[in-house]
Design a protein around this nucleic acid. Sequence first.
RNA 1: GGCGUUAUGGUGUAACAGGUUAACACGUCGCCCUCUCAAGGCGAAGAGUCCGGGUUCGAGCCCCGGUAACGCUACCA
Length: 495
Amino acid sequence: MTDQSTAAPIRVRIAPSPTGDPHVGTAYIGLLNLIYARQRQGQFILRIEDTDRTRFVATSEQEIFDSLHWLGLKWDEGPDVGGPFGPYRQSERTAIYREHIEILLANGTAYRSFETAEELEAMRKSQLAAKLPPRYNGAHRELSQAQIDAYIAEGRPFVVRLKVPAEGETSFRDELRGEIKFSHNNVDDQVLMKSDGFPTYHLANVVDDHLMRITDVIRAEEWISSTPKHVLLYKAFGWDLPRFWHMPLLRNLDKSKISKRKNPVSLIYYRQAGFLPGSMLNFLGLMGGGMPAGGKVNEEKNSQVEIFDLPKMIEQFDFAKISLGGPVFDLVKLKWLNGEYLRALTPKAFFDQLRNNLFSDDYLRAIAPLVQTRIETLSQFGDLADFFFRDDVTPPQDQFLPKKRTLEETLAFTAELLTVLETSDWTTEALDTTLRAAGAAKEWSVKENFMLLRAILTGRTTSPPLLESLVVFGKSRSLDRVRRFLDTQKKQRKP
RNA sequence: GGCGUUAUGGUGUAACAGGUUAACACGUCGCCCUCUCAAGGCGAAGAGUCCGGGUUCGAGCCCCGGUAACGCUACCA
């Protein structure tokens, strides 16, 4: 029952959410999906999962497109290129989800649940306090039609939940690991449709994958525990299951799931910091095995360098050879690989890279007005604007530490700044508001506040205007600089 | 806590369907080249394959039992 007709054309997809910077993990899973599709003359689809209105970021979708294109990952169907199974943006498919939720409500595999978010939160807390696994208590599983009608007439908001069978288990086949079983005791009655009428991931994902004729779901390992819910949904609709492939999770150096706190994860960062798309793709392809002999080309002398481009990966990548331990995303090795790519460039191509990226007209045009009034000879440009072109800066303590502050409170305040900056819009106006508010909240003067950030960003106490500099330097790289600063300070204090 | 997944040097990976001193790359260290730094060349250290049992003439590969790490445990994906 797991296999779709073998004659059906292979169709795979990635389904990123536009909730922030395009993630390196999206590129990783995207690459794997693309390789899988190309190896089998299949189709690769991009679907935007924008059902979470609270985390939605307007610019994010375009950034996902741009970053993926930068890497050379091309999709056959998607919101921007269209296709026969659209729309490819979930926010444009709400009518479809409503229709489908009606089917489940009608055949008794889902039910309305009228508790408020606060009630649920309270329930969760008390369960946790009692050391019980936090799960929905099923209070509204068997509401009578009369009660339901009454609640609805009252105008009480509700969510729709999956009615997981009380007994038994659900098992499915993971193509890389074999059979995986979950007892229904451990599968919660997942919310399928939120009270705002938007579907959750679980519903939208299953419905779309079926409607878009997806044959193989290739996604990250973190989804394994919710797969039984998805399987139950396919069954509830009476649909065939796709194949499931759960890929190992990219990790930080400490083996935890890769995160911006410990590692740059934004593709925008990597692009702006001057990594070449080819080396990034090559590196990603090496993560988790799959390539012959772990990336060793052959026994010939001098040809052991792990150089793979997309066509080569499509030719040689073997999904059966994927190793399941979570690979550490090792920035040191990525840099080495990128260096290899840089050195392999012709002098002309290398010059073009510099000219089109680090020293692009756009970048220089944005920086120029910030320094024009501050220099007397053109060569002083370098003295003042060097931080725009550097990988990192390290301000000495006497530069960043305000006179009246201890190192302790300064670092705490910096961490505070980091959190508010992460969610701030990246315009001078927004940054001004954000920073002033954060400073006021902790009783840091604007001067102390701005000076601190200036030192972190530029490595000195004299610089072009802070806000404008932040904007020009970009959000990803600016935040990375703050994180690295914090990290360096932490490491210096510990040992 | 519950459930699930995983486990080869510091890191990424190899090791045919169990068969010699566990291989390659990054990193580290040393030497050579050299005005410096890289790059490049040469070399070294570093794992006995998470631990404990078992099967076998023989186990990193098979079986059993532990442990640890990670993931999930939301009206987020």
